[in-house]
Protein backbone atom coordinates (compact mmCIF):
# COMPACT_ATOMS: atom_id res chain seq x y z
CA UNK A 1 0.00 0.00 0.00
CA UNK A 2 2.85 2.32 0.78
CA UNK A 3 3.94 2.05 -2.81
CA UNK A 4 0.67 3.46 -4.04
CA UNK A 5 0.99 6.41 -1.74
CA UNK A 6 4.50 7.01 -3.02
CA UNK A 7 3.27 6.98 -6.59
CA UNK A 8 0.44 9.31 -5.75
CA UNK A 9 2.72 11.76 -4.08
CA UNK A 10 4.98 11.68 -7.15
CA UNK A 11 1.93 12.65 -9.16
CA UNK A 12 1.15 15.50 -6.82
CA UNK A 13 4.74 16.71 -6.71
CA UNK A 14 4.96 16.75 -10.47
CA UNK A 15 1.76 18.73 -10.54
CA UNK A 16 3.35 21.46 -8.41
CA UNK A 17 5.90 22.14 -11.15
CA UNK A 18 3.19 22.65 -13.68
CA UNK A 19 1.86 26.13 -14.11
CA UNK A 20 -1.52 27.01 -15.50
CA UNK A 21 -0.84 29.35 -18.42
CA UNK A 22 -3.55 31.82 -19.27
CA UNK A 23 -4.82 32.19 -22.79
CA UNK A 24 -3.19 35.15 -24.47
CA UNK A 25 -5.53 37.99 -25.36
CA UNK A 26 -6.19 38.44 -29.04
CA UNK A 27 -7.61 41.31 -31.06
CA UNK A 28 -8.68 41.56 -34.73
CA UNK A 29 -5.36 43.23 -35.50
CA UNK A 30 -3.24 40.65 -33.73
CA UNK A 31 -5.12 37.87 -35.50
CA UNK A 32 -4.61 39.56 -38.85
CA UNK A 33 -0.97 40.18 -37.99
CA UNK A 34 -0.26 36.46 -37.98
CA UNK A 35 -1.53 35.80 -34.47
CA UNK A 36 -4.05 33.37 -35.88
CA UNK A 37 -1.20 30.90 -36.40
CA UNK A 38 -0.95 30.60 -32.61
CA UNK A 39 -4.62 30.10 -31.96
CA UNK A 40 -5.28 26.65 -30.54
CA UNK A 41 -8.73 25.16 -30.87
CA UNK A 42 -10.60 22.06 -29.71
CA UNK A 43 -13.71 20.37 -31.03
CA UNK A 44 -15.19 18.09 -28.38
CA UNK A 45 -17.80 15.76 -29.86
CA UNK A 46 -20.26 13.60 -27.98
CA UNK A 47 -20.43 11.41 -31.07
CA UNK A 48 -19.50 11.68 -34.71
CA UNK A 49 -21.85 9.05 -36.02
CA UNK A 50 -24.12 9.92 -38.93
CA UNK A 51 -24.08 12.32 -41.82
CA UNK A 52 -25.28 15.31 -39.81
CA UNK A 53 -22.16 15.08 -37.68
CA UNK A 54 -19.95 14.57 -40.71
CA UNK A 55 -21.33 17.73 -42.31
CA UNK A 56 -21.14 19.77 -39.14
CA UNK A 57 -17.57 18.73 -38.38
CA UNK A 58 -16.39 19.38 -41.92
CA UNK A 59 -18.02 22.81 -41.69
CA UNK A 60 -16.05 23.55 -38.53
CA UNK A 61 -12.81 22.28 -40.02
CA UNK A 62 -13.27 24.17 -43.29
CA UNK A 63 -13.73 27.44 -41.42
CA UNK A 64 -10.66 26.77 -39.25
CA UNK A 65 -8.78 26.18 -42.46
CA UNK A 66 -10.16 29.27 -44.17
CA UNK A 67 -8.94 31.61 -41.47
CA UNK A 68 -5.53 29.96 -41.32
CA UNK A 69 -5.51 28.03 -38.07
CA UNK A 70 -2.80 25.39 -38.56
CA UNK A 71 -3.84 21.76 -38.64
CA UNK A 72 -1.52 20.99 -35.75
CA UNK A 73 -3.40 23.43 -33.51
CA UNK A 74 -6.70 21.62 -33.92
CA UNK A 75 -7.62 19.07 -31.24
CA UNK A 76 -10.61 16.80 -31.91
CA UNK A 77 -12.16 14.14 -29.69
CA UNK A 78 -15.00 11.67 -30.11
CA UNK A 79 -16.66 10.24 -27.00
CA UNK A 80 -18.79 7.77 -28.97
CA UNK A 81 -21.85 8.44 -26.81
CA UNK A 82 -19.80 7.74 -23.66
CA UNK A 83 -20.54 10.79 -21.58
CA UNK A 84 -17.97 9.95 -18.96
CA UNK A 85 -15.39 10.00 -21.72
CA UNK A 86 -16.77 13.29 -23.03
CA UNK A 87 -16.20 14.92 -19.64
CA UNK A 88 -12.67 13.58 -19.60
CA UNK A 89 -12.13 14.78 -23.19
CA UNK A 90 -13.26 18.26 -22.25
CA UNK A 91 -10.84 18.28 -19.33
CA UNK A 92 -8.08 17.16 -21.66
CA UNK A 93 -8.91 20.00 -24.05
CA UNK A 94 -8.64 22.46 -21.16
CA UNK A 95 -5.34 20.91 -20.12
CA UNK A 96 -4.06 21.46 -23.62
CA UNK A 97 -4.43 25.22 -23.06
CA UNK A 98 -6.59 25.80 -26.12
CA UNK A 99 -8.11 29.21 -26.82
CA UNK A 100 -11.39 28.01 -28.23
CA UNK A 101 -13.50 24.96 -27.40
CA UNK A 102 -16.49 24.02 -29.52
CA UNK A 103 -18.70 21.53 -27.72
CA UNK A 104 -20.82 19.45 -30.05
CA UNK A 105 -23.86 17.98 -28.27
CA UNK A 106 -23.51 16.43 -24.80
CA UNK A 107 -25.49 16.64 -21.59
CA UNK A 108 -25.45 19.65 -19.31
CA UNK A 109 -25.48 17.61 -16.08
CA UNK A 110 -21.90 16.42 -16.10
CA UNK A 111 -20.35 19.07 -18.35
CA UNK A 112 -21.45 22.25 -16.63
CA UNK A 113 -18.79 22.41 -13.88
CA UNK A 114 -16.03 21.65 -16.38
CA UNK A 115 -17.28 24.29 -18.81
CA UNK A 116 -17.23 26.73 -15.89
CA UNK A 117 -13.54 25.87 -15.36
CA UNK A 118 -12.86 26.57 -19.03
CA UNK A 119 -14.68 29.90 -18.91
CA UNK A 120 -12.78 30.86 -15.76
CA UNK A 121 -9.54 30.19 -17.57
CA UNK A 122 -10.56 32.62 -20.30
CA UNK A 123 -11.26 29.95 -22.93
CA UNK A 124 -13.94 30.84 -25.51
CA UNK A 125 -16.65 28.20 -25.40
CA UNK A 126 -19.23 27.73 -28.15
CA UNK A 127 -21.79 24.94 -27.85
CA UNK A 128 -24.04 23.38 -30.41
CA UNK A 129 -27.29 21.66 -29.45
CA UNK A 130 -26.47 21.75 -25.76
CA UNK A 131 -28.70 23.79 -23.44
CA UNK A 132 -26.61 25.22 -20.63
CA UNK A 133 -27.94 28.64 -19.69
CA UNK A 134 -24.47 29.74 -18.63
CA UNK A 135 -22.98 33.21 -18.92
CA UNK A 136 -20.09 33.77 -21.30
CA UNK A 137 -20.90 30.71 -23.35
CA UNK A 138 -22.17 31.14 -26.90
CA UNK A 139 -24.97 28.63 -27.39
CA UNK A 140 -25.96 27.75 -30.94
CA UNK A 141 -28.77 25.50 -32.02
CA UNK A 142 -30.63 24.32 -34.99
CA UNK A 143 -34.14 25.68 -34.74
CA UNK A 144 -35.42 22.44 -33.32
CA UNK A 145 -38.91 23.66 -32.57
CA UNK A 146 -39.36 24.68 -36.15
CA UNK A 147 -37.74 21.51 -37.49
CA UNK A 148 -40.24 19.42 -35.56
CA UNK A 149 -43.11 21.71 -36.48
CA UNK A 150 -42.34 21.59 -40.22
CA UNK A 151 -42.02 17.84 -40.42
CA UNK A 152 -45.02 17.11 -38.20
CA UNK A 153 -47.27 19.67 -39.85
CA UNK A 154 -46.38 18.19 -43.21
CA UNK A 155 -47.53 14.79 -41.90
CA UNK A 156 -50.71 16.22 -40.42
CA UNK A 157 -51.55 18.02 -43.64
CA UNK A 158 -50.97 14.93 -45.76
CA UNK A 159 -53.31 12.87 -43.58
CA UNK A 160 -55.93 15.53 -43.06
CA UNK A 161 -55.39 15.53 -39.34
CA UNK A 162 -56.25 11.84 -38.87
CA UNK A 163 -53.52 9.21 -38.62
CA UNK A 164 -52.09 6.48 -36.47
CA UNK A 165 -48.38 7.19 -36.26
CA UNK A 166 -45.20 5.52 -35.07
CA UNK A 167 -42.82 7.87 -33.27
CA UNK A 168 -39.09 7.20 -33.22
CA UNK A 169 -37.53 9.40 -30.62
CA UNK A 170 -34.98 9.25 -27.81
CA UNK A 171 -34.82 11.45 -24.74
CA UNK A 172 -31.88 12.98 -22.96
CA UNK A 173 -30.48 15.07 -25.83
CA UNK A 174 -31.33 18.77 -25.79
CA UNK A 175 -32.55 18.95 -29.40
CA UNK A 176 -34.61 15.80 -28.92
CA UNK A 177 -36.33 17.17 -25.86
CA UNK A 178 -37.24 20.28 -27.82
CA UNK A 179 -38.61 18.31 -30.73
CA UNK A 180 -40.68 16.24 -28.36
CA UNK A 181 -42.34 19.33 -26.96
CA UNK A 182 -43.65 20.24 -30.41
CA UNK A 183 -45.00 16.72 -30.90
CA UNK A 184 -46.90 16.92 -27.65
CA UNK A 185 -48.19 20.37 -28.51
CA UNK A 186 -49.49 19.23 -31.90
CA UNK A 187 -50.99 16.03 -30.47
CA UNK A 188 -53.10 18.24 -28.24
CA UNK A 189 -54.07 20.38 -31.18
CA UNK A 190 -54.96 17.48 -33.47
CA UNK A 191 -56.72 14.75 -31.53
CA UNK A 192 -57.10 12.74 -34.74
CA UNK A 193 -53.36 11.99 -34.60
CA UNK A 194 -52.73 8.94 -32.46
CA UNK A 195 -49.32 7.68 -31.39
CA UNK A 196 -49.53 3.88 -31.48
CA UNK A 197 -45.83 3.10 -31.15
CA UNK A 198 -43.05 4.99 -29.45
CA UNK A 199 -39.44 3.79 -29.56
CA UNK A 200 -35.88 4.65 -30.45
CA UNK A 201 -32.38 4.39 -28.97
CA UNK A 202 -29.16 6.19 -29.75
CA UNK A 203 -26.37 3.64 -30.07
CA UNK A 204 -23.25 3.11 -32.12
CA UNK A 205 -25.51 1.10 -34.44
CA UNK A 206 -28.57 3.30 -34.43
CA UNK A 207 -29.67 2.50 -37.98
CA UNK A 208 -29.49 -1.25 -37.47
CA UNK A 209 -31.12 -1.16 -34.05
CA UNK A 210 -33.92 1.06 -35.30
CA UNK A 211 -34.50 -1.23 -38.23
CA UNK A 212 -34.93 -4.22 -35.93
CA UNK A 213 -37.22 -2.34 -33.60
CA UNK A 214 -39.27 -1.13 -36.54
CA UNK A 215 -39.70 -4.65 -37.87
CA UNK A 216 -41.12 -5.65 -34.50
CA UNK A 217 -43.34 -2.57 -34.35
CA UNK A 218 -44.69 -3.27 -37.84
CA UNK A 219 -45.75 -6.73 -36.71
CA UNK A 220 -47.40 -5.44 -33.56
CA UNK A 221 -49.06 -2.44 -35.17
CA UNK A 222 -49.98 -3.13 -38.78
CA UNK A 223 -52.39 -0.22 -38.56
CA UNK A 224 -49.65 2.45 -38.58
CA UNK A 225 -50.30 5.11 -41.23
CA UNK A 226 -47.06 7.09 -40.97
CA UNK A 227 -43.74 7.31 -39.13
CA UNK A 228 -42.28 10.38 -37.56
CA UNK A 229 -38.52 9.94 -37.18
CA UNK A 230 -37.03 12.66 -35.04
CA UNK A 231 -33.50 12.06 -36.39
CA UNK A 232 -32.40 10.98 -39.86
CA UNK A 233 -30.52 8.00 -38.40
CA UNK A 234 -33.89 6.79 -37.12
CA UNK A 235 -35.46 7.53 -40.48
CA UNK A 236 -32.84 5.40 -42.22
CA UNK A 237 -33.62 2.52 -39.86
CA UNK A 238 -37.34 2.79 -40.54
CA UNK A 239 -36.64 3.13 -44.26
CA UNK A 240 -34.63 -0.10 -44.29
CA UNK A 241 -37.31 -1.94 -42.35
CA UNK A 242 -40.03 -0.78 -44.75
CA UNK A 243 -37.90 -1.70 -47.73
CA UNK A 244 -37.43 -5.18 -46.30
CA UNK A 245 -41.12 -5.75 -45.66
CA UNK A 246 -42.21 -3.98 -48.87
CA UNK A 247 -44.67 -1.79 -46.98
CA UNK A 248 -45.29 1.73 -48.22
CA UNK A 249 -45.81 3.77 -45.07
CA UNK A 250 -44.70 7.39 -45.39
CA UNK A 251 -41.77 8.62 -43.27
CA UNK A 252 -41.47 12.22 -42.09
CA UNK A 253 -38.15 13.06 -40.53
CA UNK A 254 -35.70 15.66 -39.29
CA UNK A 255 -32.14 16.28 -40.65
CA UNK A 256 -30.74 15.52 -44.05
CA UNK A 257 -27.59 14.17 -45.66
CA UNK A 258 -26.47 12.98 -49.11
CA UNK A 259 -27.27 9.45 -48.02
CA UNK A 260 -30.76 10.49 -46.96
CA UNK A 261 -31.29 12.22 -50.27
CA UNK A 262 -30.38 9.16 -52.26
CA UNK A 263 -32.88 7.15 -50.19
CA UNK A 264 -35.59 9.75 -50.70
CA UNK A 265 -34.93 9.84 -54.43
CA UNK A 266 -35.28 6.12 -54.88
CA UNK A 267 -38.27 5.01 -56.88
CA UNK A 268 -41.32 4.56 -54.69
CA UNK A 269 -39.42 5.69 -51.61
CA UNK A 270 -41.66 5.99 -48.54
CA UNK A 271 -39.46 8.78 -47.18
CA UNK A 272 -41.60 11.71 -48.22
CA UNK A 273 -40.26 14.70 -46.37
CA UNK A 274 -37.64 15.89 -43.91
CA UNK A 275 -37.09 19.14 -42.10
CA UNK A 276 -33.50 20.25 -41.89
CA UNK A 277 -31.02 23.02 -41.27
CA UNK A 278 -27.63 23.18 -43.00
CA UNK A 279 -25.18 21.61 -40.53
CA UNK A 280 -22.15 22.53 -42.63
CA UNK A 281 -22.92 26.22 -42.44
CA UNK A 282 -23.76 25.88 -38.74
CA UNK A 283 -20.27 24.51 -38.20
CA UNK A 284 -18.74 27.46 -40.04
CA UNK A 285 -20.88 29.93 -38.11
CA UNK A 286 -19.81 28.40 -34.76
CA UNK A 287 -16.17 28.98 -35.66
CA UNK A 288 -16.86 32.56 -36.71
CA UNK A 289 -18.71 33.25 -33.47
CA UNK A 290 -15.83 31.83 -31.49
CA UNK A 291 -13.28 33.96 -33.34
CA UNK A 292 -15.35 37.09 -32.79
CA UNK A 293 -15.36 36.34 -29.04
CA UNK A 294 -11.67 35.57 -29.11
CA UNK A 295 -10.89 38.87 -30.76
CA UNK A 296 -12.55 40.63 -27.86
CA UNK A 297 -15.68 41.60 -29.78
CA UNK A 298 -19.13 40.71 -28.61
CA UNK A 299 -20.85 37.71 -30.19
CA UNK A 300 -24.53 37.09 -29.55
CA UNK A 301 -25.35 34.81 -26.61
CA UNK A 302 -27.69 32.62 -28.70
CA UNK A 303 -27.85 31.73 -32.33
CA UNK A 304 -30.72 29.82 -33.92
CA UNK A 305 -29.97 28.15 -37.24
CA UNK A 306 -32.98 28.37 -39.61
CA UNK A 307 -34.94 25.28 -40.61
CA UNK A 308 -36.61 24.39 -43.92
CA UNK A 309 -38.84 21.60 -45.11
CA UNK A 310 -37.36 19.44 -47.84
CA UNK A 311 -39.82 17.24 -49.71
CA UNK A 312 -39.33 14.27 -51.96
CA UNK A 313 -40.25 16.43 -54.95
CA UNK A 314 -37.50 18.88 -54.12
CA UNK A 315 -34.76 16.30 -53.88
CA UNK A 316 -35.97 14.51 -57.01
CA UNK A 317 -35.40 17.75 -58.92
CA UNK A 318 -31.73 17.83 -57.90
CA UNK A 319 -29.49 17.00 -60.85
CA UNK A 320 -27.69 13.68 -60.54
CA UNK A 321 -24.64 13.96 -58.27
CA UNK A 322 -25.59 17.37 -56.87
CA UNK A 323 -26.21 18.09 -53.23
CA UNK A 324 -28.41 20.72 -51.71
CA UNK A 325 -27.13 24.25 -52.23
CA UNK A 326 -28.38 27.80 -52.24
CA UNK A 327 -29.47 27.30 -55.83
CA UNK A 328 -32.04 24.66 -54.88
CA UNK A 329 -32.83 25.51 -51.25
CA UNK A 330 -32.49 29.11 -50.26
CA UNK A 331 -31.75 28.38 -46.60
CA UNK A 332 -28.77 26.26 -47.61
CA UNK A 333 -25.14 27.25 -48.07
CA UNK A 334 -23.34 30.47 -47.10
CA UNK A 335 -25.61 32.48 -44.88
CA UNK A 336 -23.52 35.63 -44.92
CA UNK A 337 -24.01 35.96 -41.17
CA UNK A 338 -21.29 36.99 -38.68
CA UNK A 339 -18.72 38.24 -41.11
CA UNK A 340 -17.09 41.34 -39.64
CA UNK A 341 -14.68 43.02 -42.06
CA UNK A 342 -11.55 41.81 -40.31
CA UNK A 343 -12.75 38.23 -40.44
CA UNK A 344 -13.36 38.52 -44.19
CA UNK A 345 -9.82 39.83 -44.56
CA UNK A 346 -8.48 37.03 -42.46
CA UNK A 347 -10.24 34.46 -44.63
CA UNK A 348 -9.08 36.14 -47.85
CA UNK A 349 -5.52 36.49 -46.67
CA UNK A 350 -5.23 32.78 -46.44
Amino acid sequence: MKKILVILSIFLLLAVFATGAFAAKYSPDSLLGGGVKNVKVALVNEFTLGQWQAQYISGVLSMFNDVGIPQSNIFITDAKFDRAKMISDLKTAIAKNVDIIIINHGAAEGLKPIIQDAVNKGIVVVTVDLALGMDKVVETNQDDYLLAYYSLMNLIQDFGGKAKIGVVWVGGFTPMEKRRKILDLLLGEFPGIQVVANYGRATQNTVGDTMEQTLAVLKAHPEIDAFWASWDQFAQGVYNALKQTGKKIPIYSIDISPEDISMMREKGSPWVATAAADPYELGRIDVRLALIELAGEKAPKFYLHPAVLITQDMVRKLPEGKYLSKKYVSAWGESGKFWPEWLKKLAKKK
Partner: peptide, 29 residues
Amino acid sequence: AIIGLLVIFSGLLPGQFLTFDNLMNIMTS
Protein backbone atom coordinates in the same frame (compact mmCIF):
# COMPACT_ATOMS: atom_id res chain seq x y z
CA ALA B 1 6.43 2.15 -18.13
CA ILE B 2 4.27 4.69 -16.29
CA ILE B 3 7.27 6.84 -15.44
CA GLY B 4 8.50 6.47 -19.02
CA LEU B 5 5.15 7.61 -20.36
CA LEU B 6 5.07 10.56 -17.96
CA VAL B 7 8.52 11.64 -19.14
CA ILE B 8 7.73 11.18 -22.83
CA PHE B 9 4.37 12.90 -22.75
CA SER B 10 5.55 15.81 -20.66
CA GLY B 11 8.39 16.26 -23.13
CA LEU B 12 6.09 16.16 -26.12
CA LEU B 13 3.36 18.24 -24.51
CA PRO B 14 5.17 20.86 -22.45
CA GLY B 15 3.00 22.73 -20.00
CA GLN B 16 -0.05 20.69 -20.97
CA PHE B 17 0.37 17.13 -19.85
CA LEU B 18 2.07 17.49 -16.51
CA THR B 19 -0.39 19.82 -14.83
CA PHE B 20 -2.30 19.20 -11.64
CA ASP B 21 -5.58 19.46 -13.51
CA ASN B 22 -4.58 16.97 -16.15
CA LEU B 23 -3.22 14.47 -13.64
CA MET B 24 -6.48 14.74 -11.72
CA ASN B 25 -8.27 14.28 -15.03
CA ILE B 26 -6.34 11.06 -15.60
CA MET B 27 -7.14 9.85 -12.11
CA THR B 28 -10.86 10.63 -12.48
CA SER B 29 -10.94 8.93 -15.85
